[in-house]
């Protein structure tokens, strides 16, 4: 088994999901789209349809956060990471046509899967933030992992549901970061105006 074929099947399944939705995509559809036999699909995904769909969600999810990482990893400061990350991630959510379509038509199928993924993601985001927090410095009595966990779950929350904040407006994002994300982790450090 080569991973290239496995990946090709996942991408083919994604194309089917874009057309038919999560529930209506079958192993046959995926096989046809990938140009392989049903048996081949089952060899790579013995769990069949359910395993395939899970793999598609995981793949898209990783891609999403991979892009987010690309967007922010060059940032110089914690503030910049948060601002650029929020703007970029929210835009990706809004512009992701397949995600938006599935959220409209099959939220009951997608959301339990996304929630499983998001538990992992809090860990990923917070791990990414740790070096920035070290560099930034924290007030006495605040552990790095505690600050990182808080920031990570808030970021995920705003990306999913911005509430009163318009994350397509850089000025609002800047305010959000300064008002709800940074104060706790900055201690007495004055936030420098840019």
């Amino acid at each position: 088994m080569d991973s290239e074929t496995g990946q090709r099947i996942v991408e083919a399944t994604y194309a089917c999901v874009a057309r038919f939705g999560l529930s209506k995509t079958t192993v046959e559809d995926a096989a046809r789209e990938a140009g392989v036999s049903r048996a081949t699909v089952y060899r790579y995904f013995p769990g069949g349809r359910d395993e395939l769909v899970d793999a598609v969600v995981s793949w898209q999810y990783l891609r999403f956060f991979g892009r987010l990482y690309e967007e922010v990893h060059g940032a110089d400061s914690l503030e910049e990471v948060l601002e650029r990350g929020l703007i970029f991630a929210r835009r990706q959510v809004l512009e992701h046509e397949v995600l938006q379509k599935v959220l409209q038509t099959e939220p009951d199928v997608l959301l339990p899967k996304l929630t499983v993924e998001s538990n992992r993601t809090v860990g990923l985001i917070s791990g990414f933030l740790v070096p920035y927090l070290h560099e930034h410095g924290l007030p006495d009595g605040l552990a790095v992992h505690e600050a990182a966990d808080f920031l990570a779950r808030m970021i995920l929350s705003y990306i999913s549901a911005p509430g009163r904040w318009d994350l397509t407006e850089p000025a609002e994002v800047r305010t959000l970061v300064r008002v709800e994300l940074l104060p706790g982790v900055t201690g007495v450090t004055q936030i420098v105006d840019r």
Partner: peptide
Amino acid sequence: EPEVVLPHLTFGHMDSVLA
């Protein structure tokens, strides 16, 4: 039965819950 509850607590519906 998370599929019954989660759609009401995430994305657009979470905005309503927050509001």
